[in-house]
Write a protein that binds this DNA or RNA. Sequence first.
DNA 1: TGAATATATATTGTGCGCAATCTGATTGCA
DNA 2: TGCAATCAGATTGCGCACAATATATATTCA
Lengths: 168, 168
Amino acid sequence: MKKAEPTSDVALDQMLCFAVYKAEQAFNRVYRAALEPLGLTYPQFLTMRLLWRSGSSSVGELSEQLGLDSGTVTPLIKRLTNMGLVRKERRADDERRVDIHLTQAGRELEAKSGEVLRCIGQALQMDMQQADATLQTINQLTSNLMTRAANVRTTGTDGDSAPHASIV
Amino acid sequence: MKKAEPTSDVALDQMLCFAVYKAEQAFNRVYRAALEPLGLTYPQFLTMRLLWRSGSSSVGELSEQLGLDSGTVTPLIKRLTNMGLVRKERRADDERRVDIHLTQAGRELEAKSGEVLRCIGQALQMDMQQADATLQTINQLTSNLMTRAANVRTTGTDGDSAPHASIV
DNA sequence: TGAATATATATTGTGCGCAATCTGATTGCA
DNA sequence: TGCAATCAGATTGCGCACAATATATATTCA
């Protein structure tokens, strides 16, 4: 019986994790260029988009929607505050909460966001169908990973129930 | 004629960039758990995989294969060195180059990598077909983005050549 | 009421990731 | 030979991202 190979013979480019890793890099780089005129980073832009939709939101709501924890969001908000785009206000009826409000400058910045998305849309080079299909595919992947994220360690050596360790 | 909306009405979950962003997060979290016994981070694991394949490699080669610049790779290597997994050696025939060699401990760590990949494979919950299809889809996306990454700013207001700024 | 518990946010420490810059080695060419 | 241009790595500074912890407010319930 053949001993299981360590599979280090599979190149990075054939691994799904690496493909996602590079796709994220690629998006980030395109956004970096497109966002340069606004002076925002990509996570800052996502945060501003949430605020443009809602007007204001608590730190916790933003964290949850972005999938980030307070250790990431708190300093991000601090930078947006320093830029004069948002304002923090402790909620009266629950003083643990801190609401983030757009300032006038923050509201005005939305006008420039359309051009950013147009840039990215152009870089994407996909029609709606293809973009949507890609979206579905990636969401399926994420959904699978999140399901098992908690109980990854339950494996053991249960043979072939894991379909392929080679492309992971 | 309808004025172009800022499209902040599109939720993050419908945006392709955000889907990729979250997929990367998900992979990272699954890997974080699976790599805990090895004491490696995900980028460190990728680097070790390259070295397990090649035995040794220059900083530049590693950077290029990982798609990262020296500002990321140099300190990463330093940490692997401190862990005793690799060793740096200036190349004799070109003293600008620094080769990274596996140590004995570094070589021995490969034995544990199979279990990591088995973990991830299990978390993925996909058969080979599906995983490969997903890989192709994502690589196509990355490839599109990288093509236009350089000349993102060339847009102007050229109307509808960009298929959709809404899902970007 | 008052003490445990839970919740919301902030802080600290570590490790990516990248732009900009620096140093030293190599190459090219006048 | 000698000096500019180039190249390989390293350094610095900033901004995520997350685990662990701290702090302050709310809630629960004995």
